[in-house]
Design a protein around this nucleic acid. Structure first.
Lengths: 177, 177
DNA sequence: CGAACGGCGTCCGGATTCGTACAGTTGCGC
DNA sequence: GCGCAACTGTACGAATCCGGACGCCGTTCG
C-alpha cells in the first residue's frame, strides 16, 4: 500500500505541491501534470496506482467540462485506475456526473489533508483490486455461490441458471465444499 | 423495460404523486411509502425494479442522515436494487457520499421530469443487470479474455495468473475460440 | 389415502479433459 | 552461428467429468 505512485493533475503549481506534500508520507512518490494533455502522456508512460484530478481548468470555465473529459481519457487509457476528483466550484450535478463516470471520490477545495489521504488510499485499494485477476476457480466459485443463494439453496434451479446440469453442480459442491 | 415496478419514498404526499404521475407512462406501476420504515416493509414484501428515495426526512434535518440510512437499509434488503436519490437541500458532500454508497443517481428538487424518467430507466436497467446471473461458461470466458489481454496475448502467463496449466488454457482457446 | 411432482443423492459407461513429454519457432546475447 | 530461454503446438495414457437412469423422500393435489 505504501509503495504507490500517484499522479496529481492541476494547473496550479501551489495546489500540486500542497497535495504532494500531504500525500508524501503515505505513498512512494507523486508525479505532477499541469494539464490533462500532459497527464495523458504520463499515464501512457508509467503505471500509476491512483490519480488526483482537478476539475477546473481554463479559469473561466466552471462547469468542469474539461475535467470530465480528462476523467474519461484517463479511464480510457487505464480502466482500472482509481481517480479522485478535486474542485473549487463544482455543484452537485458535476459531482454526480463525475461519480457516474467512475470517479472514486469527489473533494472540495480547500480540502482537509486527512480527507485527501483517505480518499487516495481508497482509490489505491480499488485500483489494486481491479488490476488483480482472480483465479478462474475463484471466479467460478463466487459465481456458483451467488447463483445458489439467489435461488435459496435450490441446486436444480441454480444449476439451470448457470447453464449446467444438476449433477454437475452437485458434484462441484461435493468436491469444492 | 416497461413492466417495471417502482417504489417512491418521500414524506410529502404531493411529491410522491408528482413523481408517480411523471413515471406512470413509462412503468407498470408505482408504490409509495411515506417513511423509510414503511419502505423497508414494502421492499421485503414485493420485488421492485427501482426506487426513488428522498434524502430529507424530519424537516429540520438537512444533512440527509436519515436518507443515507434508508439507502443502506434498502441495499441491505436487496443489493441488486437500483436507487435514485432525491433532495432539496443536499450539498456536494451528501451527493458524493450517497453515490459511494451505491446510489445510481442523485437529483435535485425541483426536478425536470425528463431527467427523472431517464434516471429511473437507468436504475431499472442496472437492477436488471445485477439480478441476471450469467452463465458459468460466460463468466469463465470473460475472465479468460480479460486475463489474456492483460498479459498481451501470452498464453503461458495468462494461464498462470488464472491458476491453470498452459495446455488447459490453450485447449480452451482452441475449443471455444 | 394414493398418486403425481419436484428435488436430492448416487451409480455407471462413455466422452472429455488433464498432465507429461517432445518437437518446432522465435528472440537474444555472446 | 550457437547456445539458451521462453513460448507455442501436438500426442498419448491416465484421470476426471458428463449426462442419463434409478431409488428415496417430502409436499401437494385430486
Amino acid at each position: 500500500m505504501n509503495d504507490a505512485r500517484i499522479l496529481i493533475i492541476d494547473d496550479d503549481t501551489d495546489v500540486r505541491q500542497a497535495a504532494a506534500l500531504a500525500l508524501a508520507p503515505h505513498v512512494e512518490g507523486c508525479d505532477e501534470a499541469a494539464s490533462p494533455l500532459e497527464a495523458a502522456r504520463l499515464v501512457r508512460e508509467r503505471r500509476y496506482d491512483a490519480v488526483l484530478l482537478d476539475m477546473n481548468f481554463l479559469a473561466g470555465a466552471r462547469d468542469g467540462e474539461a475535467g470530465l473529459a480528462a476523467l474519461a481519457d484517463l479511464r480510457a487509457a487505464d480502466p482500472a485506475l482509481g481517480v479522485v476528483l478535486l474542485t473549487a466550484y463544482g455543484g452537485v450535478s458535476l459531482a454526480v456526473q463525475a461519480m457516474k463516470q467512475g470517479g472514486e471520490d469527489f473533494l472540495l477545495k480547500p480540502w482537509r489533508n486527512a480527507q485527501l489521504v483517505a480518499a487516495i488510499r481508497e482509490a489505491i485499494a480499488r485500483t489494486s483490486n481491479r488490476r488483480h485477476t482472480p483465479t478462474l476457480a475463484a471466479v467460478e466459485q463466487s459465481t456458483i455461490t451467488e447463483a445458489l443463494q439467489r435461488h435459496g439453496g435450490n441446486i436444480s434451479r441454480a444449476a439451470a441458471s448457470l447453464g449446467l446440469t444438476r449433477q454437475a453442480l452437485y458434484r462441484r459442491l461435493a468436491r469444492d465444499g
